[in-house]
């Protein structure tokens, strides 16, 4: 029995997003989309989290923050990049203070496209992340 898959806890961090995707992530938790019915809970504590949702691109200042959050999460963990900025920098890729997508620093498992990413797409991304979480858990058991 794999409990993570039954009730994954997510942690959201805003890299340098314009809020569009962040609000998409939050909207997933509210009555219309309501991911809590699947057991998904939004937590503020990295130690409790299974899935890290990152919105927005990285810059020199938030790289250590993102790195620290990731390191604090317990294994197994999955990273999902929400929106085009988190994927590649998007429209802001050429800005001087943008390093690029999340995958410059963290191993990203799921990319969710969109500007801004729609809640449906985010939920889809989380569901994809779940099966990856499952695989990672099994790999840990086998070790």
């Amino acid at each position: 029995m794999n409990f993570n898959k039954k009730s994954p806890w997510i942690l959201h961090y805003d890299g340098s997003s314009c809020n569009g995707c962040d609000i998409g992530v939050l909207a997933c938790l509210t009555p219309l989309y309501d991911v809590e019915r699947f057991g998904v809970i939004n937590t503020g504590n990295p130690r409790h989290a299974d899935i890290l949702l990152l919105t927005g691109s990285l810059n020199a200042q938030n790289i250590p923050v993102v790195q620290q959050i990731y390191d604090q999460m317990p294994e197994p963990k999955v990273v999902a990049a929400i929106g085009i900025c988190a994927t590649s920098g998007g429209i802001f890729a050429e800005c001087y203070n943008v390093v690029g997508g999340v995958d410059k620093v963290l191993p990203v498992d799921v990319y969710v496209p969109g500007c801004a990413a729609r809640p449906q797409a985010i939920i889809d991304g989380v569901v994809k992340a779940l099966s990856i979480l499952d695989e990672k858990q099994n790999a840990l058991k086998g070790r």
């Binding site: 340098s16 927005g56 203070n97």
Partner: peptide, 14 residues
């Protein structure tokens, strides 16, 4: 501050 600074004002050049 500065965690979200992108510098998009400078994108007018591109």
């Amino acid at each position: 501050i500065g965690y979200i600074h992108r510098g998009l004002e400078k994108l007018v050049e591109k």
